[in-house]
Amino acid sequence: MNAPARYELFVLDEGERPVEVIEDTKIPNAATIKVMKQDHTLGNLIRAQLLSMPQVLFAGYKVPHPLQPHFLIKIQTDGTATPTEILEQACNKLIQMMVSLEAKFKREFSFKDVDGAVAEDPYGTVTAGGATWTDGRDYLDF
């Protein structure tokens, strides 16, 4: 059996760097960034965010081979920022968006709590799971 171990899809090897930036020598303000141990989930998300940013002239990603657990993302900017900076901005924007989305989800779920829909939930979702933690200790108490 010479199939690679499945965990290699998402665990960084010993000493492996998560990100590698390869500057483009022929095109100005362009770089290819290799992200290890990530797949379309992250690649496509970032690509879409980059394309929505006005400073980006080109953004595209590919997973070179389905058996190799990394993807490449190619970015060209208009020169106001380097591709790495733009990528950082894109990630920050996405995280901000997710933080706000998370707050909205929490709110929505709490409304549903009031409706009593969760009351019948024996596997209390974390916030409603008071019954599981008998010691009066919240799991957030360290």
Binding site: P18, V19, T41, L42, C91, I95, E102, F105, Y123, T125
Partner: peptide
């Protein structure tokens, strides 16, 4: 049933953020 639906949704969002955060960290650490 291993996790509740609320937990799945919230953890999913956190996991995505963590993926982005690790990318950011990798870019900065370089």
């Amino acid at each position: 049933g291993s996790l509740g639906p609320q937990e799945v949704v919230m953890k999913g969002l956190q996991e995505l953020q963590q993926k982005l955060a690790s990318l950011l960290l990798g870019l900065k650490a370089e």
